[in-house]
Amino acid sequence: MSVAKISLPKSVNRGESVAVRVAIQHPMETGYRVDNKGKLILKNTVREMNCLYNGALVFSAEMGSGIAANPYLLFYLVAKDSGLIQLNWVDDAGVKGTASALLTVV
């Protein structure tokens, strides 16, 4: 089980910019490394990460072995209504993960 975290400001004014920070515990295996028996370790990276704001897709990222282990992303959304900001990600092995946080718009 890996840890995924999302961080938002406590509350924002309508129309303002919201910094969304994401951290996912994932080795982002490149597929170029070998284990201590010389066997190639299969590539397994977080392939895609989507961000939904009250159910609507607002941001997405396709990633590969060029993104460092334990990916960290910071991006900015426009505050519209209070509601749920949800992240969904999937890796090459098909493992899915999610993290969400509530945004309060005043």
Partner: peptide, 15 residues
């Protein structure tokens, strides 16, 4: 703490 990759392990430890 948020940008520190090490904290992911501490969070796992908390669970």
């Amino acid at each position: 703490d948020f940008s520190s990759p090490a904290m992911l392990w501490a969070t796992r430890g908390e669970h």
